[in-house]
Design a protein around this nucleic acid. Structure first.
Lengths: 221, 221
DNA sequence: CAGGAACTTGACATTCTGGTCAGGTTTTGG
DNA sequence: CCAAAACCTGACCAGAATGTCAAGTTCCTG
């Protein structure tokens, strides 16, 4: 049909982006990610998304064929950010710094994009039913590359012998936690909400423990 | 009203438990926890729970007043397991062993009760709206006790200086991960499903890294 | 500035959902 | 074996959800 959400082509490429469409789609997606993150796919009503966007429901349907289309668009977009932090894990870097940088980047993402992070986690927890085969493979490949880097460090004797895949999951878990379970984290700290200082303390703790825990004995200070 | 779900009293205490009621409630809860874990509270239809239980919808309503009642019953039950693993963290134990035992227990729980674990995580991710004030306080207190133990170890110089609360979250995150994101874990390992050996490898990696990462230099081997 | 494309939206049709209920069947204690 | 309690369930309801539409309004381009 004529308009196909983000990838639609209008009669003339015209402006850098169709301002109205771009603005409204952005508004809808912003509202949707929040709701999906909190109530899941099945639990989110289109009427809620519309209300949260300040648009009439029919207008939401004008921009997105179905609820699935909104969800899929978000997945697609989020997936692009997936590998971002992983880029810190490079063979030519010192393990200590690379790992510290990864943790810092991931925690920063958790802080700045908590909602998106939660949305994505939610999708994964449901078994990633919305992920296409290609998307799955992409994630797997990206991860494998970095696993190989860590494995190289282990073989070089720069890291103590450990299973790089499980090590990776520790990194992911420890940082993702601060987005997904920000509530628990705040509760544990006895605060209503996490602030920048809390994230800094988290970073320090995670980096300290993990770096000290994975470096080979001879490279430890 | 007459029947009040689990705590109802029948005319005679009779059998060790009302077999019919006990069996059906258990069936319903088993089906419900699975669905809630996967689709959240709002996303789960009572009709689905009924179908998954193999009972007519009206029968589900016979045992539980509302959907909330089912959910609340599950929360209540799950909360009892919350502190279980934490009991390993005792001041009179050697930190190394206590922490290793905690990790092993938590991972074991993740493996054996993945669904419940996911259900609980889901609830927390949504901000724990269903947790009562008392339940929240309970969790906070339980955590605080154990935080104090870890803090004691730090002050004794048995653990390197670290924020015990963030350290705790690392423990929680690294173990919870294997329940909530079993799918990602399996994907990362390139398997369809995690088996016992995978959990053992996870345990070893997490214990190795965290123990080595938190022990004070002088107590390290 | 005209005309077509893009956008907007109230109202509607259809399907679902949580929850109720009345009238049945089975269990159980005595 | 018999009443009373416990259990079962098809049918039903009111409100809500999704998705459609046709009749408009606004925007852009030639």
């Amino acid at each position: 049909m004529a308009r196909e959400s983000v990838t639609a082509k209008r009669r003339t490429p015209k402006a850098p982006e169709d301002r109205i469409r771009a603005r409204n789609e952005a508004t809808i997606l912003r509202a949707a990610v929040e709701l999906f993150a909190r109530k899941g796919f099945d639990g989110t009503r289109i009427a809620e998304i519309a209300e949260a966007s300040g648009l009439p429901k029919a207008n939401v349907y004008y921009y997105f064929e179905t609820k699935e289309a909104i969800y899929a668009t978000l997945i697609e977009r989020l997936l692009k950010g997936w590998d971002k932090a992983l880029e810190h894990i490079r063979a030519d870097r010192e393990p200590r710094e690379a790992i510290a940088a990864y943790i810092a980047a991931k925690l920063d993402y958790s802080r700045r994009h908590g909602t998106e992070s939660r949305f994505f986690a939610n999708e994964i927890m449901r078994g990633g039913a919305f992920l296409s085969k290609a998307q799955r493979r992409h994630m797997q490949e990206i991860t494998r590359e970095r696993v190989d880097v860590v494995d190289g460090w282990v073989r070089d004797g720069r890291l103590r012998p450990l299973d790089p895949r499980h090590f990776f999951m520790m990194l992911w878990a420890s940082t993702q936690f601060y987005a997904d379970f920000a509530e628990v984290a705040a509760m544990t700290l006895g605060k209503p909400k996490l602030d920048a200082a809390d994230y800094e303390a988290a970073r320090r703790t995670v980096v300290d423990v993990i770096v000290a825990g994975c470096l080979a004995a001879e490279s430890r200070p």
